[in-house]
Write a protein that binds this DNA or RNA. Structure first.
Lengths: 325, 325
DNA sequence: TTGTATGCGTTATCAT
DNA sequence: ATGATAACGCATACAA
């Protein structure tokens, strides 16, 4: 890649003339412009983004920070974000991180690079951050919150999702509803469990939460359970439950219903029949893009998760049986 | 984020003095150094990477280009690459792309940014590229090749993988071996199919290839097949086959065996019992990192894919039955 | 011990 | 119509 000065030398003109040609500014002979443009095209000239940003304080790239742990949901989320940012004419530069220290370091790197803003999936909820990091650079967080100014946490109404899940399953006659979740800690995981527990209690049902260590434990637990419905924390867990139930010879949804959360496209491709609560990915990434590029704070309450009915939820097969408690 | 000049003004010294403090260079009073360092720490000062690279022609970031299409394998691959690059003290900046045009544009952007090198998953095999793009920047490709100089294609022996799959399954007594693959075109997909076909013919077996349009078609096909073993192009297809077989009520591996390819950590988390041919991700990302940072071309033949035995392969349940051809 | 000048690549504003 | 110059932030060589 050559510089504008090299291009000027090649064309036998000064840097200023090259600039006029490249930017369509007046004060240049058409023949000169054509010649320079042809040369630029031929050599694939591009202005150095670093130099541009340095000079004009321009900020047209958005940094993204996601855990290197490959949760399929993250990828789909970032893919949506890319679409939302393209509408705002912004580039996306993604850095994967491993652990809290790397997260902080990568954030400082973005700050030093003077990116326009950062979209992040913090390593833990209520993650503390020095104020100076975000003083000049808005931060949009999802899944976990950051404790720092100039930042915005974008989330749907996760607690309501937990309540809605119970309500929906109870309306189908289920009373033994098991919440299968993860040992990981995150805002949404905790809130969904709280919503689930609250709604179960309101209905006089006993909340039961399963956090399987591995698929073996899951298979054992599901083979023995008297639950007629599983409310899974996300689609990945739902898929693992479906596989465990298949191994245990239990039919879905005839004998037992399974509900996931996320509706992440990649997962649904793997598991096209899964009924799930769709995380409003498009709306929230749009809100994030708006906040990062124009500083717009989303108005109104957090959006709900929407039920997408496919084939893994059925009525309680035996509504009058309370199960062997 | 403040500049070194602002820091100097704040400390009441010149830019040169700040530089001496920050870089531990001699010729500065200890008290002055301490004061400047404290100020820098307090404000979270960091040199602007863009300015550094501009000044010193330093190239310490590696660009990565991956399709925004969420193939899980890509993310696992990039995670490994990050590890390999960390050993070389390089940063990774990932840009997702959509389509050939965006791929070329993102590559040009990296060239303009003078990154040290680019790791890419090209949008198609034998993807043509203008020479000037890679003139000053090595390119490492996986999964598909780029037709351009200064680039290296990193792949295991995909054809041998296809042959090995057949050999292994035939050794277990299988004769009806179905290759389930994708309509997509990529180097590895094609080579695996070729290896499969060649080895089947050598053994006097009839190669049969299935490219299901969707999971419905897959379920129908697998419910009716007389194959006793499935050689799946990758782990994703293997997982979908497992689910389709479960729906069709066919037991794995008692009635039918399933072999995947990749051993992608994310998939194995979803499907811990899948027997698969492990793609040598670590070795190839290391080779990529070495090529990009030091220009080292890997010696020796392409590495093989290694069988990882778990629970989805069994012996042919009825080795004397040739099936109803 | 400290301050100053220079150049990396761009672009805008001057002068010719 | 074109050339020269300055500045963005940083690091280095050199002057004081």
């Amino acid at each position: 890649m050559l510089s504008s000065l090299q291009l000027a030398t090649l064309a036998g003109v000064s840097q200023g003339t090259v600039d006029r040609a490249l930017h369509g500014r007046p004060g240049i002979r058409p023949a000169t412009r054509t010649r320079i443009l042809a040369l630029a095209e031929q050599h694939g000239y591009r202005p150095h983004p670093g130099a541009q940003e340095l000079l004009h304080g321009r900020r047209l790239t958005i940094g993204a920070l996601a855990p290197a742990v490959n949760l399929i949901f993250f990828m789909d989320l970032l893919s949506e974000l890319k679409t939302a940012l393209a509408e705002q004419d912004c580039r996306l530069s993604l850095t994967p991180y491993d652990g809290a220290a790397e997260f902080r370091d990568a954030l400082a790197e973005f700050a030093a690079r003077r990116v326009r803003g950062v979209f992040a999936i913090p390593p833990a909820d209520r993650f503390p951050l020095p104020e100076h990091l975000t003083a000049d650079m808005p931060l949009a967080c999802v899944l976990n919150r950051c404790e720092v100014g100039n930042s915005l946490f974008l989330a749907p109404d996760e607690r309501r999702a937990g309540r809605d899940a119970v309500t929906m399953l109870a309306d189908r006659g289920h009373r033994q509803i098991l919440h299968v979740t993860s040992r990981r800690d995150a805002f949404g995981i905790r809130e969904r469990a709280r919503g689930y527990t609250a709604e179960m209690k309101v209905r006089g049902l006993a909340p039961r939460i399963l956090k399987p260590a591995d698929d073996g434990a899951l298979t054992v637990a599901l083979a023995a359970t008297d639950a007629t419905a599983l409310f899974c924390m996300n689609d990945e867990i739902a898929l693992r439950c479906l596989r465990a139930l298949a191994r245990a010879g239990r039919r879905v949804p005839e004998e037992i219903s399974v509900l996931g959360v996320d509706n992440s496209p990649t997962f649904i491709r793997l598991c096209p029949d899964l009924t799930t609560l769709a995380w409003p990915m498009r709306e929230l990434t749009r809100q994030a893009a708006a906040w990062l590029t124009t500083g717009t704070v989303p108005a109104g309450p957090p959006p709900p998760l929407i039920l997408v009915e496919r084939g893994t939820i059925g009525d309680n097969p035996d509504p009058f049986c309370e199960g062997h408690r």
